[in-house]
């Protein structure tokens, strides 16, 4: 299935958001996630199913002012 992750189209075998976080090699506790523009809290990632064309954001702490 093809999804858009952080603005880039990628191919993924992950069915859910938590599987995608793991597939991309992220530590589940050090990222925050959104699906189609809506925040998905950590405990709800497993139930957040991906579909073709889904827009996913996986965000990390970064420099800021």
């Amino acid at each position: 299935m093809q999804i858009e992750l952080n603005g880039e189209r990628i191919e993924t075998g992950a069915a859910s958001l938590d599987a995608l976080v793991e597939e991309r090699g992220h530590d589940a506790g050090s990222v925050a996630t959104a699906l189609d523009g809506a925040f998905v809290p950590r405990p709800l990632r497993a139930a957040a199913m991906l579909r073709d064309g889904a827009r996913v954001e996986i965000l990390s702490p970064m420099q800021g002012g």
Binding site: N6, G7, H26, S30, V31, A32, E57, I58, L59, S60, P61, M62, Q63, G64, G65
Partner: peptide, 19 residues
């Protein structure tokens, strides 16, 4: 100290260590 949330770049891991 202030920080942001962004798509992870190259220095993301180093930044977390600094925090």
């Amino acid at each position: 100290i202030t920080v942001s949330l962004r798509r992870e770049g190259r220095e993301g891991g180093a930044f977390r260590d600094i925090l």
